[in-house]
Design a protein around this nucleic acid. Structure first.
Lengths: 139, 139
DNA sequence: CTCGGTGCAAACTCTTTGCATTGAC
DNA sequence: GTCAATGCAAAGAGTTTGCACCGAG
């Protein structure tokens, strides 16, 4: 767990805390809450404050280094490293465990899931982007 | 705005407040926050407290009368009447406005959106359900 | 009349902000 | 040495809970 695979991109000042959060995300295979991240960091004996974690995560998201999501029924925000690939999840409403889906083209999702002993009760699809007005405002 | 189209299902005790929340949801075409709902209710001059709105919404969700969602970058929970049909959204990251998509089969989504002057920057697809373990536990 | 529903206040959780201090460059 | 980043405390937003009173059945 000590290994440090990914470097902070230049332009982002290196600090012990940032490297530590990056390493926690790097070593996790599923989205984590800020509290989780803070806890894991402590275990890797890096002391850092929760508000710092939030600030670092905000930075990482802005820099496209991390992705922020929430489960559709709310609750805490989850963060994961941006691995720059399509990822879709199947979320168990019981244990909240996350199955990562293979590929994207949607066809065959249900089949893949049933092969993995997952009973689908619903889904959600959302596209994000900007409507014309907002897109213009952003220029 | 006074019309009352949908009845509270039997088994749920009728109260002024519940009918009012139901009517607000019925008359809204897009997901609303608890605060929005409370505000709208006041306008239809039904006095009710925000905590009551939360309790009513919780009940409605449990009874499958309403659906709860959150936008993937978090923020407040949104509620809408369960119209028992597939619905997928395009969410503007600028103004948070929600476009409802036609149909479901996914193909052609991007096309439909570009025709509606919406620049897609990302999407998310999540399937919900139960993994084997949890499914067994629930029986 | 009874018991669940509501008004209201207060607690709680997650997240953000302000400010003095620390540490990277 | 400078200025941004962090530690820490405290505030804020959204949501939940506790309890006494109210009102639907």
């Amino acid at each position: 767990m000590k290994e440090q695979r990914r470097e902070l991109p230049r332009g982002i000042k290196k600090t012990r805390q940032r490297e530590c959060v990056l390493s926690v995300l790097e070593n996790s295979d599923y989205p984590m809450s800020a509290v989780d991240i803070c806890g894991s960091a402590q275990k890797e004996d890096c002391r850092l404050w929760l508000s710092t974690v939030y600030r670092i995560l905000e930075l990482f998201v802005k820099e496209d280094l991390a992705l922020k999501t929430t489960m559709p029924d709310g609750g805490t925000a989850l963060y994961e490293l941006n691995r720059f690939r399509h990822r879709h999840y199947a979320v168990c409403l019981g244990c909240r465990r996350v199955l990562e889906m293979e590929g994207c083209p949607l066809e065959g999702f249900a089949t893949e899931l049933s092969e993995r002993d997952f009973r689908v009760t619903g889904h959600r699809i959302e596209m994000y982007g900007y409507c014309k007005e907002c897109d213009l405002k952003r220029q």
